[in-house]
Design a protein around this nucleic acid. Structure first.
Lengths: 143, 143
DNA sequence: CTATCTGCAAAAAGTTTGCACTTTT
DNA sequence: AAAAGTGCAAACTTTTTGCAGATAG
């Protein structure tokens, strides 16, 4: 099943980068594998403590940072400046549709940079950011 | 000249909202009127102290927040999570081209949401964010 | 066995709040 | 004179760092 695969894949990435596979890191992988939204450090920490009460916030934080540095997670500052992480789906370029209530995200392939976009100035384009924010179907119903 | 106009316009917005025009607020308006990029609270504070050494950081912070709540400034979290402010150009919808080096920004009218964009799920779309990051002509030359 | 990782504690950095004093209106 | 704004200090939140003991490889 796919959740397990995601866990194993993340573990493999860590191993390949020479990291040790601790219980904490395995649990971290499991938490991300079973969610498709952006998670805050605090949320991840709370989830961790459910199965592993002695874990420290620093360790969670540290590993979140390391995992995104190595590319297994994707790091993201929301519109309100809050830091979030999600499993990296970097295989192909895409953008996100994000629920402002539950923060579940869907990906879509349309990219505005692929159109013949006439931009002012003579900038050397490096990067872009495009996200659509809204309320998902479930959250619309439950309000 | 246009910089002075911008200052007067910001002052007018504050007055209209029932705010008092203090030296600090006038200076704040002048700082934003003469820059077309996003400014960090720290940068604004540093600029303030040049002409008004006794100003406190809290006052700058407080006024930046208040000015964006009332719409005279636009508040923005950069890709790295840093908070920035710039004069609000809210008259018409547009997006920004931002220099990653000097943070000068140019606006452009193209909006990806105006195309017939097929998005997954049944989200109620509320908002979107589209920015292009690059290096402006001057910064390319000086490197 | 050794290098890496964890947990604790403490330090930075960024942001907000309470309050007495000053300034605008 | 009254109401609102300022500056100072302190609290709070989020993120980072140092280090002794624990653990994966």
């Amino acid at each position: 099943m796919s959740e397990t695969n995601n866990v194993e894949q993340m573990i493999k990435v860590m191993s390949r980068n020479g990291w040790r596979i601790t219980d904490q890191r395995r649990l971290l992988a499991e938490i991300f594998a079973k969610t498709d939204g952006y998670l805050s450090p605090k949320y991840v920490y709370d989830q961790m403590t459910v199965h592993y009460p002695s874990v420290s916030f620093d360790t969670v934080y540290r590993n979140l940072r390391l995992l995104s540095e190595m590319g297994a997670l994707e790091q993201f500052y929301f519109m309100d400046g809050g830091l979030k992480f999600r499993m990296n789906c970097s295989n192909h370029h895409h953008h996100h549709l994000i629920c402002m209530n539950c923060e579940k995200t869907l990906t879509f392939d349309y990219c505005p940079m692929e159109t013949t976009l006439k931009l002012p100035g003579n900038f050397k384009i490096i990067n872009h950011r495009f996200e659509v924010y809204g309320v998902c179907e479930e959250c619309q119903e439950s309000s």
